[in-house]
Amino acid sequence: MLLAFALPLALLLQQAPIADRLRGRVSPEIAALATELGTAAAARGLPLDPLIQKAIEGNAKGVPADRVAAAMRLVVSQLDASHTALRGSPALAADTVAVAAGAFALNAGLKDGDVAALSRSVADAPASDVIVGLRVAGTLVALGVPPAETVNLVQATLKAGRPAGELLGLPGQIQAQVAKGTPPAQAAAGLARAAAAQSRRGPPPGRGQPPARPGPPPHP
């Protein structure tokens, strides 16, 4: 009898946050679709936030409902693909933040295999560092670095045992070199070689200390 009450209640509790977050922000049609897609996605262990954000973004930009619906379905398919790609690392596959980070990387231009390779590349790296690595990888691809060079650079940096703050600094370093005329692929390859050399020399002093957050970037 307990289950007979618990299951419908659990379903209602999953649907409630979606409806609450979308109330007054999107049309009832989009809200209904988001609730339907989100409830099914949550049951598969996927995060809800990217789907809800896409619905709100579509409405804010004045996009027709059919295109918002298509974009929402694309978001769910990328979350599913990310979830599948992360299965090689069960802890990451079960982490909704990691799944969202993988979906962002896929949307930026990485392939499923790239996400899987990044998640498996450093077995002893903390999950939080790999999540940052996935986000940074997506950002590097968005900057024009080809996927292969992106994966090499992020893997080399993770293997060098550098703190997450250094991973976050990679897009800025690429942008700085591109501003000087270096092609993005070449800039990434150079940074990857430097990280690999660091890896051969051993972890930098202070490894094991909490990673320091970078200071305020001069500009996004």
Binding site: R67, A70, A71, L74, N107
Partner: peptide, 8 residues
């Protein structure tokens, strides 16, 4: 800043 497709 780097940019990605917004789906729209």
């Amino acid at each position: 800043a780097p940019a990605v497709d917004d789906g729209f």
